[in-house]
């Protein structure tokens, strides 16, 4: 969903430029480092290796990103958000749980979830439902579970990701359910100007709105593909330059590995539909707990989503929305590594 552009536009450009420099820097660094190792023939071979790994991640991930974008585009244009709000429970715990599972109805990724949540709040969505949805929907939805399955198959990573996400999202949302909405939400959750072809207008035949949905999807895809490209560049650089023995030294520490991958998830801001493919780079060198923390925490909180949170919640609340999931993810990651030994 691109509608938050009115407020986030400036931030978007700023980040666009930053991302661009990051990408160029990565490319330059890689080339320089490859040159330093000498020889033109080996240089070509290593550039080819870099390119193959980069495109491997990109080509595996892009279709999932595209599916996610198209789904979000169709929700944006076709679904009346008021309906869900009327059907959902209001008491803290059931509402929190319902919110955490709402992603199965609205399969949006982390980029789409903030605008959708804001739209739903505008339609009278109970507070805990929205927070549960905000935190869990980027993972608890068919597209993301499918891509996680594609990357990791059935196993602890897939189930752990689903379970931990629902657990953390429900917990945090139930906690906020005890507060008064006015303490949590920004006084006027600034609804974006009505979209051009919102479902409410509905005066046109449905198939007239399909191009609109696809164009929205195209914008979403472009927005998110930037983060995917930077993430893939970083992963490919790492795989081409950093010896696995070095990674192993960091990645086998049960505590350090979790902290490192969580920080990486926050910085990379890669879309949840495709982060599983980036996590594959760490499979052989990092602990299971750290990979799970990467896959659970990243979709809930990262640079780009926490900026967007500010458009919906009071700044103090945004801080809690970052700290609580971070602490809980770290805790669960450590439990997996130190006690459960997955």
């Amino acid at each position: 969903m691109t509608t938050p552009s009115s407020e986030v536009a400036a931030g978007g450009t700023f980040f666009g430029r930053k991302l661009w420099f990051m990408a160029l820097g990565l490319l330059g660094l890689t080339l320089a480092a490859l040159m330093a190792r000498g020889g033109v023939a080996p240089l070509l071979a290593r550039v080819q290796t870099f390119s193959t790994i980069f495109l491997g991640i990109f080509l595996e991930a892009a279709p999932f990103l595209l599916i996610g974008a198209v789904v979000a585009g169709f929700i944006e244009v076709f679904v009346d958000p008021g309906l869900a709000s009327r059907l959902l429970p209001r008491r803290a715990l059931p509402a929190a749980l319902a919110g955490s599972l709402l992603g199965f109805v609205f399969p949006v990724c982390e980029c789409g979830v903030v605008p959708v949540t804001r739209r739903l709040y505008g339609k009278g969505l109970p507070l805990p439902v929205g927070i549960g949805f905000l935190l869990a929907a980027p993972v608890v939805n068919p597209v993301v579970l499918f891509s996680t399955y594609a990357a990791f198959g059935w196993g602890p990573v897939l189930w752990g990701r689903l379970l931990f996400t629902v657990l953390i999202a429900t917990g945090v949302a139930a906690l906020f359910g005890l507060a008064h909405p006015a303490e949590v939400l920004r006084s006027r959750p600034g609804m974006p100007p009505a979209t051009v072809s919102g479902s409410v207008t509905g005066e046109r035949v449905w198939w007239h709105r399909v191009p609109s949905a696809l164009a929205t999807a195209a914008d979403d895809f472009l927005d998110m593909a930037r983060y995917l490209v930077v993430g893939s560049l970083l992963a490919a650089t790492m795989q081409t330059l950093v010896p696995q023995t070095t990674l192993l030294a960091i990645g086998s520490g049960p505590v350090v590995s979790v902290a490192v991958l969580m920080a990486l998830a926050f910085v990379l801001s890669v879309c949840s539909t495709v982060d599983a493919f980036l996590a594959l780079s760490f499979v052989r060198t990092f602990t299971t707990g750290s990979i799970l923390a990467f896959l659970v925490f990243g979709p809930m909180v990262d640079i780009k989503s926490s900026l967007m949170f500010l458009g919906v919640f009071r700044s103090r609340v945004v801080l809690y929305l970052i700290v609580l999931p971070a602490t809980l993810s770290l805790l669960l990651g450590l439990l997996v590594n130190l006690h459960w030994g997955w």
Partner: peptide, 22 residues
């Protein structure tokens, strides 16, 4: 306006990288 925002020059350079490398 809405769609003008989605495409910055920097963003375009980034998404074209896979095509260029490929």
């Amino acid at each position: 306006h809405r769609h003008g925002h989605a495409l910055t020059r920097a963003g375009l350079v980034l998404v074209v990288i896979p095509l260029l490398l490929g």
